[in-house]
Design a protein around this nucleic acid. Structure first.
Lengths: 226, 226
DNA sequence: TTTTTCTGTGTACATTTGACACAATACAAA
DNA sequence: TTTGTATTGTGTCAAATGTACACAGAAAAA
């Protein structure tokens, strides 16, 4: 019997690297932003990329992505979602790397990114100012953004990147930044309040004409719509 | 320098197997069905599973899934969609296997499945009669079915598993089988015809009371709604 | 032929969505 | 303080969409 029978290839292990890449979205300065990092080493030294890293032996891809969030922006407990898995044989110039892309929503003002390891910079970049990214990460980001937009149509997950208390105007601006078009102020109010997970704090925001009311989310009720 | 430096793990390749598993849906005998195969060898010998196989060096996961469709049910050119990637370290009893699940829609009457290689049986199983599957494939199937349902709400891709000509009644039955609830006959007609990709063949189906009209799809127009 | 069952067509109603008017509030200018 | 201005909270109206149902015609079954 031929121990090197090539027909048994399907039962053999290969030497593929498996990684997770993250499109971490945040909202600050009236713009939707995504966290990008600059590589300090080859391949793609000096190029901006989505943060990513190899899956280790004892963790799932979801745990890998969560670990990246913890290491990069010190965020824990944030829900992440799969965008897709990218497996083109030529997508990595050195060796075969299959990656799964995730996206997450965080509050950038709470978490300053810290470049580390093989990175020399990290920043929150406006979505319409993102440069060409290394590998196929421009494609990953485009797909992640589309998944985010689609998700927002069906579940109000955008409230996860608002501060503890906020006005409906601020919430609307987040929505508009994500879906990329303007909304009617009054229709937005009606739709959001119908969800019934917002609590009017009975306080008014100072320094703004009109005296807008401040709201906060009822987390338990928000879960129902997520 | 320590050649076995474990801190360089992120730049090393690991011996993970990467596979694609397919939930291939079809419609026959008034029921939505999925193709399942029985394994002849360990692990899970004798257990039913979703068909799957290892990604080879020169193909993407999508090409792996397409190859499986060709080998199993002799289908080509069918669009496939990613469901998700499953990476639990313990999901395979022997070694680490990361799999990406796909789903597809075919016409089962056109394609008799042929068990081969390490399989000893293959059949189109009614979705509500699927036994407990090997590995985590019951989970994969549940997720694929949910993705299919969600997709159908937004694009009329169910017409891909109807014969060349069909009555609106038959199309409705496919819809009902997928989404799992009954629809109003007249509202369904109005909604589907509004899409404007159906062509009335001006012929009537024989052997059925009422003399239902036969339709066929205008493939180019269907693309617009897909 | 008569009856039964299914099909094609139309209608009335409720709900959701989109567009817009008006008065009240609070900051800004005088 | 008074007045002006930009923004907010609330309400209305019409269009679009979704839901429920009635009735006549067609083809098989009796």
């Amino acid at each position: 019997m031929n121990l090197y029978n090539t027909t048994r290839v399907t039962t053999e292990s290969h030497s593929y690297a498996i990684t997770a890449d993250c499109a971490i979205f945040g909202f600050s300065d009236d713009a939707l932003r995504v966290l990008i990092v600059r590589r300090a080493v080859a391949p793609f030294a000096g190029h901006w990329c989505l943060p990513g890293g190899a899956m280790s032996d004892d963790e799932t891809l979801e745990q890998t992505a969560s670990r990246l969030l913890r290491e990069l922006v010190n965020v824990e407990g944030i829900p992440i979602r799969q965008v897709g898995t990218y497996s083109s044989p030529k997508r990595h110039p050195v060796r075969r790397v299959v990656t799964t892309c995730f996206y997450a929503l965080v509050r950038p003002e709470d978490h300053t990114p810290n470049a580390q390891k093989y990175l020399d910079d990290a920043r929150w970049c406006k979505l319409d100012e993102v440069p060409q990214l290394g590998y196929d990460h421009s494609q990953l980001l485009a797909d992640a953004y589309q998944a985010l937009q689609q998700e927002l149509q069906q579940s109000p997950l955008a409230f996860q990147l608002l501060p503890n208390t906020f006005t409906l105007k601020e919430a609307q601006e987040v929505y508009e930044a994500i879906i990329g078009e303007d909304l009617d102020r009054r229709n937005f109010r009606r739709k959001i309040l119908a969800y019934d997970f917002l609590i009017n704090t009975e306080e008014k925001k100072a320094g703004v004409k009109g005296g807008p009311e401040l709201y906060r989310v009822d987390d338990t009720k928000l879960e129902n719509h997520l």
